[in-house]
Design a protein around this nucleic acid. Structure first.
Lengths: 198, 198, 198, 198
DNA sequence: TATGAATGAGGCTTCATTCAT
DNA sequence: TATGAATGAAGCCTCATTCAT
């Protein structure tokens, strides 16, 4: 029925997420996805008309979950720094949880407009969410600040990807670091510096 | 002969840079590169044993140039903020200059260890260079700070890629913004904020 | 039940006729036929064991109708030329009426013996009917003459197919022409000709 | 070189002619053609961009040869009946010579405009050639007469296809019959007939 | 009888790479 | 060194047919 249909669709998306995530778009084969999902190749095409469409669906579901889970957490926090902490923790925590599938975010098909639209919509929504929060707290240039915060976090996402030894402790440390840097800037502690800024 | 060989090698790398850069690894064909370089397909294999190796060579040359040009500029600057300014300006300026070939940095082959090594070597060298500079100026956690600065800059690199209207003015503005944020953090201006941090 | 069965069978044959006729055997999909007939794909296989068998049934029904309708008309005519006129008119008129479905007669599956038998049976029965009539009227070589007459008519059938502007007037003209040519041959009107035949 | 290229192209066309001719378009596989030609599958695509294009090339070459060979023969003949005899003999003789490959003319891909154009160009050129000759000999309605003659011949082409026992004697007999019928019409020999036409 | 989700064999085509010249 | 015709493995996708409901 409808439920069964939904179930199989989830099964496919899960399988595709794992494979696209670990091998990227081009090196994941539709036949592999079918095998991973435990269904026949042809069945994939009952749910998605092409490999690109499946990839886009996987990506979109991932993005949607990311934002859906962030929203409530953000509202629960009060002060600016708490909110930044929530965002950093969610961002890094999320990608830590799917760290084996990070290639999903690096190897995407070219020239697929729907995918580009989906990615653009995500980054816009995410940036908008952060910018709105910053604005409420009186931060100017909220859009640029929001992007920058994301940039800081994304760099640590790279750490997660490329460093197999990355631990939950590292995670917590990076989270705190990112928030402090964003909030107060770096803190050089030399005479030269004081001299220069005076 | 040797000179001629070097010339042709440059011609190939230039052609490959343009095509990999605009179409990505998987959607660029060896035959297209040969055409673009004005040579025969087979000739490519006299210089590179595989498509992956050619891609890696293109990437490496690009990275090397980036760092080679940054070094002298950085030494010429004196104060911390000047150096940050130099880095930001170089980083964004460089990617602005090759903004039509940005796919080079997004669509790369998977599972190719040599390429991974090359990329890792670059990001390490770049981070090390910035971290060393920060350390000289008394910044603690220099490695994390260096990465974060790169992260902020990379986010604006995305702007350059996805926004065709991105101008040189935007470039200058982003540069200044990145340096100020990194140095002093964001500046909320509300009572709530003061209250919280007191 | 039996009536209902017959009804649904007719519905399927009608749908299949339209689609096979306009797209040919290979480019018509069983799913399209099911859609066109307003039934499920699986249901087709309750009535026909294969696509080939369905095609053969469609073809056979078309052939049978053609001959069934011709019989009475032919008996009603008296003189040789009247009968030829009836045949030509029926032949061209019939294909004019189904001119949108002519691919039924051009794109047929290969290597299907039952279909070949069906087609052979039709062309034999048609030829036999005409040949018998010709014989009654004292025409020698009746079998060859019958085939030739069919050949002349079939060429004009091609006109109907390939010329979208083919009109009912054209139809009437071709009919008369075919009968006259068959009956009296072409009529060159030059001295050379007379000389040669003398 | 050029000669070698031309040779291989001929080899491919020959192989494709045999297979398309005996199995039709849809049931001939590109891999079979490659095998038959003794080359690799991929090589086919150095010469033709698609299966449809190859089929069209095969068809066109066949048509061109048919007309090229007919031209000189036709000019060599003098009187009307001699010319008709030449045409009939060429038409039936040609298809007799390739009788094993007749499916080339029955199973063609749908909706391929270039192929349709090629076929239309052939039938037009052939009809025009016969019509021009008829006109020179004072035959009116030359276009319709030309088509009709082709129709009579084509019907016998069917005999050649469907009757494996068709012999060269049958061929000669059909040739003479077609010419006489076209020239003088059928010859009923009964009182009824005379009565009617008087 | 009727359904339609699922199957999986098989086709066309691409393209990195080779090798005889 | 340079060429480019030839190769053939491999992938995406189609669609006739089946079968559990």
């Amino acid at each position: 029925m409808s439920a069964a249909h939904g179930d199989k669709l989830e099964v496919i998306l899960d399988a595709a997420f794992r494979l696209f995530g670990s091998s990227g778009f081009y090196e994941t084969k539709m036949s592999e996805i079918a095998d991973e999902a435990g269904i026949a190749k042809g069945t994939l095409y009952l749910y998605f008309t092409s490999k690109e469409e499946l990839f886009t669906a996987v990506t979109k579901r991932d993005f949607d979950r990311f934002l859906e889970q962030l929203g409530p957490k953000l509202e629960a926090a009060g002060f600016l720094e708490d909110k930044l902490q929530v965002i950093a923790s969610h961002h890094l925590g999320y990608y830590y949880s799917v760290r084996d599938y990070t290639r999903l975010f690096f190897h995407t098909p070219n020239r697929d407009q729907k995918l580009m639209d989906t990615m653009y919509a995500f980054i816009s929504a995410y940036t908008r969410m952060i910018a709105a929060m910053l604005e409420e707290h009186g931060v100017t240039d909220s859009w640029l600040h929001a992007k920058s915060f994301i940039g800081i976090l994304d760099v640590f996402k790279m750490d997660i990807l490329f460093n197999p030894a990355f631990s939950e402790q590292d995670l917590a440390q990076r989270t705190g670091f990112a928030v402090r840097l964003f909030r107060y800037g770096c803190k050089p502690d030399t005479a030269e510096n004081r001299e220069h800024t005076s």
